[in-house]
Design a protein around this nucleic acid. Structure first.
Lengths: 109, 109
DNA sequence: AATAATGATCGTAATATTGCGATGTAATTA
DNA sequence: TAATTACATCGCAATATTACGATCATTATT
């Protein structure tokens, strides 16, 4: 017990859940917003701007990266992160589909 | 340590994160999909259809309810759940806004 | 080469999540 | 009223997440 039984769900359900999970933390939302804002990538800035330790930021970045939402390239001494356009589009599509599948027509409960 | 430092983030960031968190599990995605499918509410059916114990389903329903995504009303001996249209719309708007704020214009990393 | 700067990773403590059996509760049926 | 049905809640074990200090690796500067 204690671990998600992914095997009993569909690919789609697991994919959506994992994308949601990657964004299910205010720090990661903040990181994404910050990256989007200054379209051109950043990184060390994040440590200064969010009030979290460097190790913590790095960990959150890793999660976003392993979910595919962002990508990072080494740029001299620092690392430049930016949105992964492909995955972002996929997310937009799947999410739009999922959320849009509910047409609040008939009032029930 | 070990607990999310919500106080250092904005309302918006915390709200988005909590909505994502509510949906960050395949079982809860499955439950939402199932509720959406048969627009009219259900409940005990879920236990039969997803391969999880009744206690587990009940727990997931509670999380979805406390996030405001669904609502339940007692219907005789059983409980009828359905989407909370208001929160769903809010979710659609906020999410659309957030995802849409990225215009994959300039390629960077 | 020595030092500094930038991040990643490790180890650890605190807390949260997931899943389930067992039990409790309220309404329905016999 | 007793039994049944449909859920909720409790309590527990296994695992995951969050945060951070400390340390490691890599590149840049002196």
């Amino acid at each position: 017990m204690g671990l998600t039984r992914t095997e009993i769900f569909t690919e789609e359900q697991n994919l959506l859940a994992s994308l949601f999970k990657a964004m299910a933390h205010p720090a990661r939302i903040a990181i994404l917003q910050r990256i989007i804002l200054s379209n051109t990538c950043i990184c060390g800035d994040l440590v200064g701007e969010l009030g979290l330790a460097q190790a913590t930021i790095s960990q959150h970045l890793k999660e976003l990266k392993s979910a595919g939402l962002i990508q990072g390239t080494i740029e001299g001494v620092s690392v430049c992160y930016c949105i992964n356009p492909k995955v972002w589009k996929l997310l937009e599509n799947r999410l739009g589909e999922f959320l849009g599948s509910y047409k609040g027509t008939t009032e029930c409960c």
